[in-house]
């Protein structure tokens, strides 16, 4: 009887404690129905495949004889959720650079830090390793975009529709050379009864 009681107590303590289970980063786990890592990954994948399959890269490379240099502009979150857009923009940057067909240049925020370092180099680095100002690679295209949502709600049910639009704009003449779009739709049903 005593053993059963101890076993039950142990079970109760285990049930109340925090548990951590490591899972694969590409495993889909939907908890609340809100935007999550899976959505971010799906958007990045779709956008990368689309961007690499379109003619803008080939046209530019053929015309200029070099890879296009791209800068990431503003990707605005106009959705109903606080979404970290930097994750899928970073995913896209990595895949596009790794494809060897596109160069990315530092964004506006990143450039400040790099320029500060260059100024510091002028004072402290050896002449052989010092990097001169005015040698930055100018961008040929800017990637801009936005995330929009439409949410319909009734009592404990929600339909959440996400649309991510990215646009590649030519810095030379404002031409839009690529338009990427990814849509995600979810039906979320919240519990009516809890413990």
């Amino acid at each position: 009887m005593k053993k059963i009681l101890i076993a039950l107590m142990a079970l109760l303590i285990t049930a109340c404690g925090t548990t951590v289970e490591r899972v694969a980063t590409d495993e889909t786990i939907d908890l609340s129905g809100a935007w999550n890592d899976t959505d971010s990954r799906l958007v990045a994948q779709e956008m990368i495949q689309d961007a690499l399959a379109r003619p803008w890269i080939g046209e530019f490379t053929g015309r200029k004889g070099q890879r296009p240099a791209v800068i990431v502009g503003t990707v605005r979150n106009l959705s109903h959720e606080h979404i970290n857009v930097k994750t899928f923009v970073a995913d896209m940057e990595r895949e596009l650079v790794n494809s060897g067909r596109v160069d990315f240049v530092a964004s506006r925020d990143e450039r400040g830090e790099i320029r500060d370092e260059r100024i510091d180099m002028d004072l402290n680095a050896s002449e052989a390793t010092r990097k001169a100002a005015g040698q930055e690679l100018g961008a040929d295209f800017m990637l801009i975009g936005q995330i929009n949502t439409i949410i319909d709600v009734d009592s404990n049910e929600q339909v959440r529709y996400y649309q991510v639009d990215l646009t590649m704009v030519s810095m030379a003449d404002n031409r839009k050379v690529w338009l990427g779009q990814k849509k995600i739709k979810k039906f979320v049903k919240n519990a009516k009864i809890r413990y």
Binding site: L78, H82, T149, V153, Q158
Partner: peptide
């Protein structure tokens, strides 16, 4: 401003609910 916009959209969903 974008963060504030997210919150007002959420307030609208809540009012709809």
């Amino acid at each position: 401003l974008d963060g504030a916009r997210v919150e007002i959209l959420q307030s609208q969903v809540e009012m709809q609910r």
